[in-house]
Amino acid sequence: MASQRDSVGASQQKETIPADEFAGIGEVACKQVMLEASDAMVLATSEGIIVGANLSAASMLGRSQDELTGMHVVQLHPEEERKRVLSVFEELRTVGHSLVEHRVLRADGSLVHAEVSGTRIRDQGTGEIFMLGVFRDIEKRREDESRQRAAVVREVHHRIKNHLQGLSGLLARHASREPALQPALRDVQGQIHSISLIHGLQSRRGSEQIWLCDMVRGVCQSIEEVWGLIQHITVTVNTTSPVYISTDECVPVALIVNELVGNAVKHGGGGWYSVNVEACVEGSPEKARVTVRNRGRLSEAFEISRGRDLSSGLGLVGALMPREGAKLDIRMIDGSDEVVSVLDLTPPVLAKPFEHEI
């Protein structure tokens, strides 16, 4: 604390502030105003040492007024914000006012989001300079803003999903009239359904982020509907906690899963109406795996890593694969007629949940 006080104090000695640049008020009068204010207020010297705090500040910070007196202002904030706090404090000393949002550290270690308004004042009697900080708890405001944003997100994604479903319906009508085009149109329908699924999940959750398990379940259900499968695709989930997909990668990953599962359905044996396909999601928020199993065989020339002997769907998979955070392997199980597609996902494709999701 001494080093912080000395560093700020040294810069104070080098600076001469014109008297007409700041408000003049007695320290006693200032403290009286603080006591009567409903907002949390803290009064500090130009070196950042707290000389007074009102009851509202004591309540917000979980400390007594006596305990706050003598602390340095940076001690009211978590370690990772203290460099920024010192920078803002220096700006306050120089400019005379500041308005920022900070996380404030309570005595029990919990954090409060606060809007901090700073004003530089001068004691009319002694000429000494003080810094007055007014702290306003903005947690409720942040929650209101988050709810409003979620409502907008839900509405936008809901509308997009409805438009895409309408387009899928048109393709279904064309497929019923042109049997020869049904396989190709079903592929396109599956892709549109996957994109629609993402917007549907985002609309339901009111968030741009979605869970990997929800995505895989939704894609499999969509394929069952598009292809008219009698036997359901088996989906199992074994994760330690929810696995979030990065907002930018939601649609590409959904399309990749759609192609892998759709390809497994086409080659799953017994025709489209009696397939044996399994999809499994496992892992953790930092490392997840999607595995798709089906009956079938790969040609000797097939090589996913080099793009050899790939169908148009798997060619699309190669084009959609993120450059970082995703790896795909498709192989046959030795001594069997089973094909396994393994999609490994790591950051940045996987993401940490948004703050309001925690």
Rank of each mutant, 00 (worst) to 15 (best):
R204S: 13
G24F: 05
R289E: 13
V251D: 06
V153T: 12
S168K: 07
L343T: 02
K161I: 05
R84C: 04
V277H: 01
V153Y: 03
R205H: 09
T94Q: 06
A254S: 12
A288Y: 04
V74S: 14
H356G: 07
E178R: 12
I233R: 01
L132T: 04
E286C: 08
L99T: 11
P353C: 03
R122C: 11
G52Y: 01
G206N: 04
I160M: 12
A319T: 15
G335S: 09
H232T: 12
E21D: 14
G335D: 11
S194P: 01
P322L: 08
Q4R: 11
E21V: 14
Q202S: 10
C280P: 04
P285G: 10
M71N: 06
V134S: 09
R106T: 03
R106W: 09
A57S: 10
R103Y: 06
I358C: 11
P347Q: 02
Q32A: 15
A351V: 03
G318K: 06
Q124G: 08
S222I: 04
W272Q: 15
T346C: 07
V261M: 04
D214C: 09
R82G: 05
A319M: 12
L181K: 07
L164A: 03
C280N: 13
V51I: 03
V153Q: 04
A150D: 02
V281I: 00
C220V: 12
P285K: 11
L86T: 08
S196V: 01
T119N: 10
E208T: 07
Q165H: 12
S110M: 08
G70T: 06
V73P: 05
V317S: 00
Q13I: 13
T346R: 10
T247K: 11
M215R: 07
S305Q: 13
A301D: 14
G200Q: 05
L35Y: 07
L350W: 07
S311H: 03
R323L: 10
R103G: 08
G62R: 04
E178V: 15
R217I: 13
D39I: 05
L260A: 02
N263Y: 08
G269K: 00
R173L: 12
P179Q: 02
V152F: 13
I25Q: 03
H232Q: 13
S176R: 11
L111E: 07
F302H: 02
E15V: 06
C30G: 06
T240P: 11
A53Q: 06
V85C: 04
A57G: 01
R122A: 06
L55W: 01
Q165Y: 13
G24R: 03
S312R: 09
